[in-house]
Design a protein around this nucleic acid. Sequence first.
DNA 1: TAGTCTTCCCTTGTCACACAAGGGGTCATG
DNA 2: CATGACCCCTTGTGTGACAAGGGAAGACTA
Lengths: 115, 115
Amino acid sequence: MADAESDLLRSSLDLLVLKALTWGPMHGYAISEWIEGATADTLLVEEGTLYPALHRMERHGWITAEWGVSENNRRAKFYKLSTAGRARFRAQAPVWHRHAEAIAVALRRTSLEFR
Amino acid sequence: MADAESDLLRSSLDLLVLKALTWGPMHGYAISEWIEGATADTLLVEEGTLYPALHRMERHGWITAEWGVSENNRRAKFYKLSTAGRARFRAQAPVWHRHAEAIAVALRRTSLEFR
DNA sequence: TAGTCTTCCCTTGTCACACAAGGGGTCATG
DNA sequence: CATGACCCCTTGTGTGACAAGGGAAGACTA
């Protein structure tokens, strides 16, 4: 069954990752924490969803990866926004907002539902 | 590549169909036109997406189908909201709004992106 | 020092579903 | 009687979220 949470994630995960990286380079674990925090725990990103997404985005050339050491002194792969990724974000974010708004308006239209 | 339009559709098609049917029984073709109109042509629903979705929702018991004759004197299958479907809509619509809002807020957070 | 927790990375298998691209039938209109 | 609008459907293909695994290494605790 289509679940509102997982499917909304599907529509916006790439955008959220790109947004996270506009704050600077981040490793995967931190990105998932940022998303949870920024959405007030509304969206939880599974690792089995996030890591493949990062690899996908790297293949698309939107982000670049580099191994480094985390704040907790652990081996971590840091992702950084590429020029293409920044462009992608700037192009797609308004599209997302526009579509989400259109859906929101359609869903709010007054009808017989409350009769 | 993940496309903002198709993926936002994925997150909200069921909800939009349920919403359409709160206006009264409708056949598939009319539902797709309603969605296009209600979203100002922002979302276009392919027939290969809509009809399977209707069958799926029927299986879930959210809508019921009945053959009839359309306004244009053509054979058409009219879908009607069931009690379960109405409940589903009332439960899921707020969830959708809350999650969409959380994502919107996260995406709008001011960061280094404009440096 | 052994055990456990936390942090960090990854993959495989499964299922759902949007879409493209097809097909078909009927009614109205010129 | 041909064309277009209306209305229904399916199959094949690809993508992607998720569950459920696995692993390694630093940090803390008893």
